[in-house]
């Protein structure tokens, strides 16, 4: 029993965080918003970092890492509000294909020349697919009409990675609100010195602190194929959605009227939060899965079952 990421895993996440902070800041989001939401240079940067091959087995030239590492990196993608479909292709499609024993596309995914849209019955759209576009509130999302089958493993993988991105988004929105609260002064002091703001931001910190381990635990449960994995994924999705929603609403409140403008960066993160909160199973869908298991006596309860 060791609920910790290794030094290597944390160092990897740190390097991705730094890379995205350097190459995918708010000015890039504005450029994408203005000039079109996909940029081959950004994608190539991710490929060169080896991220498209993160979960591709070593025998196919990838890094052969697991869902725990992928979830950690997905959180970094959320933190950077990454627009490119890295998470869908590299952290959802790759493990899904591997689980089905399909290895034909791995080399192309690794090389960055193949992106895999993920149609599923749970969503009324397909992200980064071909065809007529639907308009998302998130200016950097590309959605097309379409739906697919109801593969439960695909749903679990994608819901987990949405949850991981949501905790990263929440971290970023909290950081933006804190920075603003430090520099904006009213009544002769930074607004962040007022308890009315402090307590709201502290509540966001609590929600995020206790959502993250749920996400990591769900990632490990999927990786280890424990029988209750779907419940843990649903728990992760609900906890991450709630933490990110609270943080988004608090962050705009802290920014005041500035938060209601298009000029302040916050809106990119807030809109991604709204999108991912409903994607891959709404709060109601996941809560229902938990209700049925926990209240309906379908889940072993008791301390020996905490990690079962």
């Amino acid at each position: 029993m060791d609920f910790r990421f290794s030094e290597d895993q944390l160092a990897l996440a740190e390097s991705v965080r730094e890379f995205l902070a350097d190459t995918h800041g708010p000015q890039v989001l504005r450029h994408l918003d203005k000039d079109g939401p996909r940029d081959p240079n950004i994608w190539q940067g991710l490929v060169d970092m080896g991220l498209t091959g993160l979960m591709v087995p070593e025998e196919f030239g990838g890094l052969g890492l697991g869902l725990a590492e992928a979830a950690l990196i997905a959180a970094e993608c959320g933190r950077a509000c990454l627009a490119e479909p890295l998470v869908d292709t590299a952290f959802v499609a790759v493990p899904w294909l591997l689980a089905k024993g399909e290895t034909g596309q791995l080399a192309a995914i690794l090389a960055g020349v193949c992106r895999i849209p993920l149609p599923h019955a749970i969503n009324p759209w397909v992200a980064d697919g071909d065809g007529a576009h639907l308009k998302s509130v998130d200016p950097l999302r590309i959605l097309t009409k379409g739906t697919g089958g109801d593969d439960p493993h695909l749903l679990d993988l994608a819901a987990l990675m949405s949850a991981a991105q949501l905790v990263g988004l929440a971290d970023a929105m909290l950081a933006q609100a804190i920075e603003y609260a430090k520099i904006r002064t009213q009544f002769g002091q930074p607004i962040g010195a007022f308890q009315g703001l402090k307590h709201q931001l502290a509540s966001c910190a609590v929600a995020i602190e206790f959502a993250k381990p749920v996400v990591w635990r769900a990632a490990q449960a999927l990786q280890d194929e424990v029988p209750t994995r779907s419940i843990h994924v649903s728990h992760a999705k609900v906890a991450a959605t709630d933490a990110a929603t609270l943080t988004a609403e608090t962050a705009i409140q802290v920014h005041g009227a500035m938060g209601y403008t298009y000029e302040v960066d916050l809106h990119f993160w807030m809109k991604r939060t709204w999108a991912l909160s409903g994607a891959w199973g709404s709060r109601a869908f996941h809560l229902n899965r938990i209700d049925n298991a926990v209240l309906g006596d379908m889940l072993e309860l008791g301390p020996q079952a905490t990690f079962a």
Partner: peptide, 21 residues
């Protein structure tokens, strides 16, 4: 918990102390 939220805000989140000006 009000004091805990102050501690969280000031020591973990780096917000200015109450009345710091």
């Amino acid at each position: 918990n009000e004091v805990q939220r102050n501690i969280t805000a000031e020591r973990l989140l780096g917000l200015p102390r109450v009345g710091a000006g």
